[in-house]
């Protein structure tokens, strides 16, 4: 029996990957990296890594001769060959994300990333990449409401075909509630939907009260009493984050630092920015708050069946 150091190293790394992925779910940090809707993928990864770890452990001690069925002709690295600088670099690269992953706690995206993504307000009519995406989903929803308008009130008596349909109705119900209600609370679950709707038809929401929280983001060209209360919208993972937010007016906005988390209450008005209408919040109160445990907004993918 011979101890294979490279196989040992691979087992060690696989073990660390297993721990890393398991740890993400145990601590709940996974939501800081990917949309929780897709967290089953990373759970699956943790299980795969564990299975591979079990296999790899058996390779650490092996008979000298029975290493591998194709050890001399195979076209990839079985870890039997000699050490070289190249190999050390390879293993270091594989170890790198695990090391930084355990050492550096996940950060919440901040205004510097938002500035790179840019064009929150400078875009033509529809600001915020996420805004549009929501809008488009919403368009479908609206037409569904129209089509099935009659059914909505009688739906209690009809057995529902499946859960998706129910969530569709719930979604539409919430949307109707938004259109009727006098004060709007931008909760995390409906944030993107409400945002898109208000953004799309700011005029029909003039005078309504609004309550929302987000981080402060400032773009060039804002007046001294203006700031943007923003959130990041995550479709799949943090790398595809887009920024959405409302232009807000409050006295002393220039004294509030970027990236401060605030909760505001205010009234919706329509403002003009770079020649296009957009909702403008006149804040009546502003409180500094702690960064929420779930700082990101995830789109409602009700049409996917979620």
């Amino acid at each position: 029996m011979k101890f294979h150091f490279q196989h040992f190293l691979k087992a060690l790394l696989l073990g660390m990957f297993t721990l890393f992925f398991a740890n993400l779910h145990i601590t709940g940090d996974i939501t800081k990296y990917v949309n929780p809707k897709y967290d089953y993928m990373s759970k699956m990864a943790a299980i795969f890594f564990f299975v591979l770890l079990l296999i790899q452990v058996t390779r650490i001690w092996q008979e000298k001769h029975a290493r591998h069925a194709c050890s001399h002709k195979c076209n990839h690295d079985h870890g039997d060959s000699q050490w070289s600088l190249r190999r050390i670099v390879s293993y270091s690269i594989v170890a790198f994300p695990i090391v930084t992953g355990f050492m550096i706690p996940p950060a919440t995206l901040d205004s510097s990333i938002a500035a790179n993504k840019g064009f929150l307000l400078t875009q033509d009519s529809n600001e915020g990449r996420g805004g549009e995406e929501r809008t488009s989903l919403l368009e479908g929803a609206k037409s569904l409401v129209e089509k099935e308008n009659i059914d909505i009130y009688s739906s209690e008596h009809i057995p529902l075909p499946n859960e998706n349909y129910l969530s569709e109705e719930e979604y539409d119900g919430k949307l109707q509630l938004l259109q009727k209600s006098e004060s709007i609370h931008m909760t995390e679950d409906m944030f993107s939907t409400y945002y898109a709707e208000i953004n799309d038809n700011p005029k029909s929401y003039i005078g309504k009260k609004i309550k929302m929280s987000g981080f402060v983001f400032k773009e060039e060209g804002l007046a001294s009493n203006q700031l943007v209360i923003s959130r990041f919208l995550i479709t799949h993972c943090i790398a595809d984050a887009s920024i959405i937010g409302f232009l807000t007016e409050i006295k002393g906005a220039d004294t509030i630092q970027e990236d401060t988390w605030v909760e505001i209450e205010g009234v919706i008005e329509v403002g003009n920015y770079n020649g296009s209408d957009l909702p403008l919040l006149k804040a009546t109160s502003l409180n500094m708050v702690e960064e929420p445990s779930e700082p990101y907004i995830y789109p409602v993918l009700k049409l996917l069946g979620k």
Binding site: Y33, S112, I113, H236, I238
Partner: peptide, 22 residues
């Protein structure tokens, strides 16, 4: 402060991609 941001984006791409690579 940009370094933790960089690290988070980096890891999030990996966490998203690794299941598919597996």
């Amino acid at each position: 402060s940009s370094l933790p941001q960089l690290n988070t984006i980096f890891l999030s791409i990996l966490i998203e991609a690794i299941p598919f690579v597996l």
